[in-house]
Simulated assay, not measured.
Amino acid sequence: MERSDKQRKPVAIKNLSELKRFIQPGVEFKTLSQKNHPDLVGLTRVVTTVQTVCFYSKIKDQPNSRFSTDNGGKGFRTDFAKADAYIFDGTTVKVKDTRNKDRGVIYEFEFYDREQTMQEDTNMDRKMVNFIREQYPPGTRIRLNSMEDPYAPIAPGTEGEVDFVDDIGTIHMKWDNGRALGIVPGEDSFSVLPPKLTTLKLYMPLTADFYERSEYGDLEPESTMLDGCALRGYQDQIMAELVKNRMPEETERGLMPSREKQLPKLKALLEHFEVTDLAAAASLVEHIGDYILTPEISSPQEAAIDELNFTMDVHSAELLLPHVNLFAYGNEIIKDDNATLTSYGLLHREDYQPMQTPVQERFEMDTQQLT
């Protein structure tokens, strides 16, 4: 018995899903019985490559063995069978011969704790694996287009969500039909689905002090507090006053050429800055020309598609779309542009600087002057 086997105990595996999670490059296991290749019995093997339908292994410390040099140097191939072909008996994994009627056990394994004992070029480049994990975090919805699995492929059009990405870049899935077969980027074809749309209603706690006039036309000294619901009846009057009291330079730069055109932008600003008083709202009206609202973009996915169409031709963008996590990419674009998604569309400053209220901007300018 080899020294490493004396020091380590075999691992108990409960089911096929757990077995597939456990088998990774570097894992060691021993063949306890093998009908077709009895000369493998008693030998410790090391996993070199894991694929969706099979895994490859080499004989430990025997690089020139015919089992180690098989399949172009990847090693001996072992196919994954269907779940009902496995018997998990404590630390022993038994596989039945499904091609024979008696379905007797054709080989038995026991697996040991992972040890990186072989330095093979079996793992994908670490940066690529990390990239795949960033692109397809757990919960990402995916639709399968096609799968390169000759035995039991997932049907095209099946949808599911990402469970995790292993160390070789295989995306392990939880398919809606109950299956758990992983997909391999570059071999299997799939598309990322956008998150399910939800309706989010935002309410601003807008209030105002309402002063009524006396019978002599003078303003009463005491005011009445009106909440946002009551203020809706005064919307036209409030907007008219905002327009009436705008600064001369606002007209020159075309601040409000059309109330109907600027109103969605104003609402987006009020929502983003959570404005609760008329003075702050009037201040934003004065600076509304500093902002750009794109009503056509209402989600990270739409932001990503808009960026791809801007940076490349339409044909190239269409080819790339199925392989890009539009949700994650769109969020990065929104973050880089110092933008925000509102109920009225994508909002950002014209100069792409961080968005601040006029009060915040004046405070920052005063602070810079003092320093």
Rank of each mutant, 00 (worst) to 15 (best):
F327P: 00
V95Y: 01
F111D: 00
N309D: 12
F76M: 00
P264G: 01
A81W: 04
H348R: 13
M128T: 15
L19E: 04
L16N: 06
A81Y: 03
I297P: 03
V27H: 00
F76R: 00
F131E: 13
Q34N: 15
R232F: 12
I288Y: 00
Q34C: 13
T92L: 14
S223L: 11
F131A: 14
V285G: 03
G254D: 05
P322H: 08
T140F: 06
S65Y: 15
P205G: 11
V53Y: 13
L263Q: 03
S283G: 03
L144D: 04
G217A: 11
Q235H: 13
H172E: 05
D113V: 14
Y234E: 05
S214C: 11
E115W: 15
N338S: 09
I292F: 07
A85M: 01
L181H: 14
M147K: 05
K35D: 11
P156L: 08
P354T: 10
E28W: 13
I238A: 08
A304T: 06
K201P: 03
L16E: 05
L200C: 06
S299Q: 10
F131D: 07
S299I: 14
E120Y: 12
I142C: 02
T49I: 15
V314N: 05
P257V: 10
S191L: 07
L206T: 05
R126V: 13
M365L: 10
A152H: 09
V314W: 09
G157I: 13
T198L: 00
F55S: 04
G75T: 00
Q51I: 06
G26R: 12
Q360F: 03
M173V: 02
L200S: 08
M1E: 11
A279N: 05
I171A: 10
V95G: 01
Y107S: 10
I334V: 09
Q237T: 14
R77S: 06
A268K: 06
H172A: 07
L200D: 07
G228W: 07
V192C: 00
I59Q: 11
L32D: 07
K9Q: 12
A85S: 02
Y86E: 00
T52M: 01
G104Y: 03
L263E: 02
I142P: 01
N64Y: 15
M256N: 02
K30D: 12
A280I: 07
L347T: 02
L346D: 01
Y329L: 15
E296M: 05
Y203N: 14
G72A: 11
L270Q: 07
M147Q: 10
A282T: 06
R114P: 09
L40I: 13
D313E: 10
V95C: 00
R143W: 03
I292E: 07
M312D: 12
M239K: 04
T48R: 05
M256R: 02
D351E: 01
E134Q: 04
M128A: 14
R259N: 05
S146K: 15
T98Q: 01
L326E: 12
S283A: 08
A81Q: 02
R259D: 04
Q34P: 04
A85N: 00
E307H: 13
